[in-house]
Structures are given as C-alpha cells and as structure tokens.
Amino acid sequence: MSVAESNPPVLAEANDAQNIRIHIDKATKIYQTKTGQTHALDNFTTDIHDNEFVCVVGPSGCGKTTLLWAMSGLHPLTSGTILLDETPITGPRPEIGMIFQEANMLPWRSIMKNVLFPFQIKHIDPRPYQDRIDHLLEVTGLKGFENKYPRELSGGMQQRASLVRCLAQDPSVILMDEPFGALDAFTRDEMNLLLLDLWSERKKTICFVTHSIPEALFMADRILIMTPRPGRLAREFIVDLPRPRDVDMQTSPYFIESMKEIKSIIRAGDSKKDQ
C-alpha cells in the first residue's frame, strides 16, 4: 500500500489559488558563441507560486541551468520575460538566493567568512543576523567548523555551508542549480532531507534544477519536465506525495510509477526532436 493511497491525496499547494511569485513568459535563449548559435531555451512559460517547491528536470544540456540563470538575473534572455513579484528581472535581486552546482565556496575564506561574504558585498552589518547564522550552523552540523577552510571540509559539508551562506539573509526565493549533483547518494539523501527541513521551518519559493528524477519526485510539489536542446517545457507533473516526505517513499509504487512516467515523457521529447 503506497503512502499516497493511505492518506487521501493532498494536492500540492500549487493548485490553491495562491499568489504567483515568479511568472515566466515565453522565455527563449540563444547563445552567440564562437562556434555559432546554441538554442538553449525555447518558449518556456510557467508560473511559480508563493512558497512552492518546483523542480526542473531534464537531460543534460536541456537549458535547465540557462533557465535558472535567467531567473537569477545573471544572464539576460534573448526574448521573453521573467517577472518576480510582477516586476521584470533584469539583474540580481536581493529577494533571490542562489545555490550553485557544487558548493562554490571561496577557498581563501574560512567557512564563517564565506557565510558573511554576501553581507560584505551588500555592505550589510551581519550582527543582527548572528542568531540566525548560529542557528543555521547548528542545524547544518557546522558548529565548530566556522574557522575551518573549505578544503578541510567534505563535499557535503561544503554544500551545507553554501546553504547557510544562502539562507543567512533569509531570501524568500531560492534558485538551486543541481546543488547536490556532485555528492554521493547517501550524502545527497541527507542533504535533501536537510533542505526539506529548512524549507518547512521557513517556507520559501524554491526552484530546484536537477537531472535526477527521483530527487525531483522526492523534493517537489510540482516538476517541470524539459525536453533536450532546445529546452522546452514538455509537461508539468504534480507530485502527489504527502509532507513531510521520508526516504521510504522512494520505494513506494506511486514513486516508481511516476518515475517511469517522467522518463517516458523525456524520451518522447527526445524522439520528437529526431523526426
């Protein structure tokens, strides 16, 4: 008996009439590179609601990262618009926190100085945030490692430190670019649970890019499935799993069926492209 059957399906909050936090309209990106044009993202349209956990899943090179970088304001789109709270994103916004592939720690700074890096860049006094930072270090198990350098920490610990760095200022939107892709399966599960814990503690709008279908199913309220280059939105998939999630759900029939379905959607997109 699957978890989904035992509890009456609680549809994801996305279905509630909630505020649209991020509105992506016909997002298209064509890179002009030395070797010619690369059509990375094509007419991508969706809405992300307040406090929704959305995963973007698709094969390598399908424009997931491009989409995320456009949402973060780091790279402009070729055409289309992305609105955050109804204003177009044209550059980095303070409401948005970004988590990069791998930990992206600055190796010449201690963990604490890495955590304080955003404050330094923004010229914000970190003292009022000290309690929050201490709490985050506690929760992520980094207490006592503040003065260590990134190279002295494991990959998982570094990525936890980057979570602390991102969450220290309590951004209301978090964009995550395959954050746990480089970690081993056990560390990855652990990080996923930690992130879900942090998210339930303080709700945020999260857009999480991954190439792992199980990871997407485990984390998301809603999965945006993308086709290979040029990246298009193939389908949206509402994840019908209750929260809080636990690792056992990953072996439930619903989970496995959903994985099959998402895989077939991606494969269908693949074959469509070949025609």
Partner: peptide, 12 residues
Amino acid sequence: QAKIALARSYGA
C-alpha cells in the same frame, strides 16, 4: 565563472 557569478548574484 561560478565564483564571479556568486558575487554577482549578491549584486557585487
């Protein structure tokens, strides 16, 4: 590029 992007994402 990733480290520069990190700084830029905080408006550096």
